[in-house]
Design a protein around this nucleic acid. Structure first.
Lengths: 215, 215, 215, 215
DNA sequence: GATGAATGAGATTTCATTCAT
DNA sequence: GATGAATGAAATCTCATTCAT
């Protein structure tokens, strides 16, 4: 039976509450249109607390970015770890992704859907977190196609496939919101169906030649 | 004998100049962070002219949206029209898309990468343009998988495939900026390689069952 | 018969009006306590105009500093120029100073009475203007004591005398506000009486030895 | 066996520690720009203690003003007392002043260099302390020129001389910081040299007439 | 005696928008 | 057709001050 209304809340707890609120507002409005006023109000405290704990609007956004990126990466790793075959590994990774996005829609929006040209510090951090996610997916992809692990930053054909896969999954995120009943498992299955066979071709560097040559 | 520097420019020309400038600024900064001041300056005129011609910041953005959506849809249609087989049709559509994005990066950013929750009028228009693009792609997809054209709004398995495909293509747009030399043709080929085989499975409603059953 | 209320005022005029107001407010409150709101109100316009024309609070202060320093230096030069003997030159300089301060009390306060630790840009500009005034006075002093003009920055005994003289004059500025009837001429005479005889001693490097030796 | 680090410090000691810190911060930043936060941190305690002991920012400043004014006045009195001739008395007073300022630069800045228009209570106290200092100096001056002590507030010619002298000494304070090696004794000697002879003229009401009459 | 948690009020600055010429 | 002049409203951020422990 937890307390209903706490006035004096210890700092670490408040910080998380603030970040929770910030993620929702940043996701709803985008970085620039989000106002610290709204975040503070949603967190149930006054603006000065936000600045005391997180320093600035930028610091606030960075904190959101870091926390959620960690969570997502952890989810991907935890899922891929125990899988025994490449196929299962990719499937588990995708499932983890769709589950994460289903449960933390706002986090994904904050991580991946911010409009261009943020401040340098934010741009840098965003590049970092995106690369971390890409690297994680890239691991799933290469493990599924070729035997070697390769470098940290996805390159070559694996990079191509990673970008395509992440883009498809990201976009399907929107499809999911239009089909609320659909469970993550079925999305995962469909996507596996759609890309698993073709991925090899690209990873092995084959080029599609079939019908015409007028390209 | 057209003058290079005209003071008195006829209205339609000025409007296009303004929209050109606006697209660049909106793409660079995002809707909210873009300032009408910057747009006016880039267009080489004073702010009151912007308001005289396009009414408001919102009107400005709507004009950008409409013009670029039309252009993209036209490009997709023009490409898909003459193709004789489903495969060629999809390939031509993808090629048109990647070509368009290569040549009009900013337009695509404005059309597809705006942060959430803009004003209602903008949200409505954005939904419209996105749906128009989706419908166009959906046409390519279904033409490639099943014989019937179906309704305007992509639904069922075709919708799923459309979302995945558009997402993949959109994301590959970023991959392209990281690999500047790569011509749109090769991107198209790789993507075809990756999805063409698997698309049928999904469109036909088959569900992948292969390895495990622990899902 | 000038216009009573002008709405649309050309930029250079408005800028001067803003600077006029700013000097009054900065003098009354000090840099940090002065609010741009109050300055705008006193200037009879809205805040955005202040920022449009003078960029920032700092820019506003810099503009005040520059304009008034120029005025004061000009007054000192104009006064000292035509004087034919060292005594007359110093006397004319002091008179010009006291006249300036009588007529532009606020300017002097802004130039000389700002509390410590302003922003670097302001500190630099302030150092510059103060040095300019010191140099001007130093010219009066040395012309009155020794024949050579010497370097731009007052050094050696001339520096000492300059500092003492400027300090005395500055402080007498307060005395003047306590004795409103007193004309600048009488202040000047008294100060000449007080320092003229002794200045030579110091400038010539003599050290006072008279009565005791317990120092 | 006094502990170096005491947690529980008796009130009078803590108050002095706070005032010490406050003087440093007020001198560095000026009254308005100084923040109670910074003072508390420098004093090594939390803000509520500052408010508990000194009531408010204003109270804090008043306490600084009172303590330092007392110290300076005491120093001046202690110096002037044992002197046997008017010259020696003034010389001793000046020396005491320059010594005080050398050793307590910040105190003098707080006492004498605050920007205009503080709160009424502070303005009143500041007027009081300045008058006390002025009175003290005035005593030195008149003792050096005329036999009678006169009223508390320096008036007439003595007032003029006092203002000039205090201003000169104050300004030389800046000169001292530019010439760090110079001992207070030499400053004092130079200033005596510069003003001692002329002071009498002014105190006796003589008006300088020498060269021209075009004033 | 001492402090972490909290805030109302007000600072500077920017922006979309309009008016008068 | 075109623009310099002008502003109301709202954004980020800071500060003196108090409460509850």
């Amino acid at each position: 039976m937890t307390d209903i209304r706490r006035r004096r809340v210890p700092r670490p707890v408040r910080e998380q509450q603030i970040i929770d609120a910030a993620i929702r507002v940043f996701a709803k409005r985008g970085y620039h249109a989000a106002s610290v006023d709204e975040i503070a109000e949603l967190a149930g405290i006054s603006k000065p607390m936000v600045y005391l704990y997180l320093d600035s609007k930028e610091g606030l956004f960075l904190a959101c970015l870091r926390r959620e990126a960690e969570r997502l990466v952890a989810a991907l790793r935890a899922a891929a770890g125990p899988a025994h075959t490449p196929e299962l590994r990719l499937r588990a990774g995708l499932l983890a992704f769709f589950t994460f996005v289903t449960e933390h829609r706002d986090s994904w929006v904050v991580l991946h859907r911010q409009a261009a040209e943020l401040s340098p510090a934010i741009a840098a951090e965003l590049a970092l977190t995106r690369r971390a996610v890409m690297t994680e997916v890239s691991g799933l992809v290469r493990a599924g196609g070729a035997e070697d692990a390769g470098p940290a930053c996805p390159d070559g054909e694996a990079g191509f496939v990673t970008y395509a896969l992440v883009g498809a999954a990201d976009s399907l995120t929107d499809w999911m919101t239009l089909h609320p009943g659909e469970p993550p498992e079925r999305i995962t299955l469909r996507l596996m169906n759609m890309v698993w066979v073709g991925m090899r071709n690209v990873l092995d560097g084959e080029v599609w030649t079939t019908p015409g040559r007028e390209l």
